[in-house]
Design a protein around this nucleic acid. Structure first.
Lengths: 211, 211
DNA sequence: CTTGTTTTGGACAGTGATGAACAAAATAAT
DNA sequence: ATTATTTTGTTCATCACTGTCCAAAACAAG
């Protein structure tokens, strides 16, 4: 007992053969693979290939396809254009944040030569209602987006930046629907300017006009 | 030559063993299977099972998974709620048609116990950019929807039913994006009233308020 | 009834994916 | 240097799917 009490808290490396690859980079490779091909179309072999490792190393590091998808999803959510909404704070203008997000979506989606759209939105159609493990996580992401947007809208309305609406919650739902649709449509409409005109129509329609 | 000239134009049945199943119903079964599970997740065995036939009969009647998907897609497009937009005509009010479509979407999507959303929208994320045969067909469906909506919007604006907008084409794009997003979001937001409130927010935002 | 045609059920080989198992390799700790 | 520990490369059995093939079944036409 006593012999094991004082353990090295800061150990530079675990004993044993070191991994020949970076775990975070492997997750990033998985994210890109899922993003491009969709969850169902990606096999463990595909993932291992994308990661540049053997399947045995994959199974040794990750549990299975689903668990690595969840990690990839977390990574994606931090990188996605709408993550900027989390920076919105009372006291600071929110409309520029909203406009910047939409501009970024148009820019990023149209510049992606593979037209992958948004991983989360793609996954709604592919996983919600079909995959019992992953579906709820996607639902959670969608609901989370609505909650954030509702908060941002309230701040904007309180601060007189956004025209008051009767039902803020419904407007947040409208916003989420538009964002989801925009990301879907960006796979078909590939011109940045055209996407941005659609966003401008949206902003004008909900009363965010001025520059 | 001459012996084969006069042929029975109206033949009740071809010679040979009759099919033990209805082809249209088989396509319908395929549509429901693709709709529920997505293209990638459905195997030929799944299709044959859903059709109640053997795989050999499937291969005898259809070419492959993709060809039957295309047939299922055509069937779906005729059945989907937005098909009603094709009935809009100059001279007749278009706003009631639009409202009816949105109401129907909310009703149908929320009443579907399997929360399948829209087959076309689901397929955007799954097929566009990935599948070279099916992707373009989905793109075509999306572009077609925008064209129809642009026409409907122009009629509505001309007839004073809809508040004039600067960029009708962009507004049509906005409409398509909203519809796509609504169908996606309907897989997460399952309450008809809540979906309808989102639609009302949208209608109000683009200047279609009155009952 | 016989012939010709088509569908059907079952079988087949080829491909690829899964998840586990195991020995070899590579390193830290002693 | 030896030992303990971990990763890696490879192999294995199992399973599902694809597309084809063929004999049996079922019917129309003559």
């Amino acid at each position: 007992m006593a012999s094991g009490v004082v353990r090295q808290v800061k150990r530079s490396r675990k004993p044993g053969r070191p991994m020949a690859f970076s775990r975070p980079e492997a997750v990033r490779a998985a994210m890109n693979t899922f993003w491009k091909n969709g969850f169902e179309a990606v096999s463990v072999s595909d993932l291992a290939d994308a990661m540049g490792i053997e399947r045995s190393s994959f199974y040794n590091t990750f549990k299975d396809r689903e668990s690595v998808f969840l990690e990839a999803l977390d990574l994606y959510r931090g990188l996605a254009p709408d993550a900027v909404l989390l920076t919105a704070r009372k006291g600071a203008p929110v409309v520029p944040v909203i406009r910047a997000m939409l501009r970024e979506i148009c820019r990023v989606r149209s510049h992606d030569p593979e037209a992958r759209g948004c991983l989360v939105v793609n996954s709604i159609g592919a996983l919600v209602g079909t995959n019992d493990t992953l579906g709820p996580r996607i639902e959670e992401a969608v609901r989370g987006a609505r909650t954030v947007l509702e908060k941002v809208l309230r701040i904007g309305i309180d601060q007189g930046e956004i025209r008051p609406v009767g039902d803020v919650r419904a407007t947040a739902g409208l916003f989420v629907a538009f964002l989801a649709g925009l990301n879907s449509v960006s796979k078909v409409i590939r011109d940045e300017k055209e996407l941005w005109r659609i966003c401008q129509s949206f902003l004008a329609s909900i009363g965010i006009d001025r520059e």
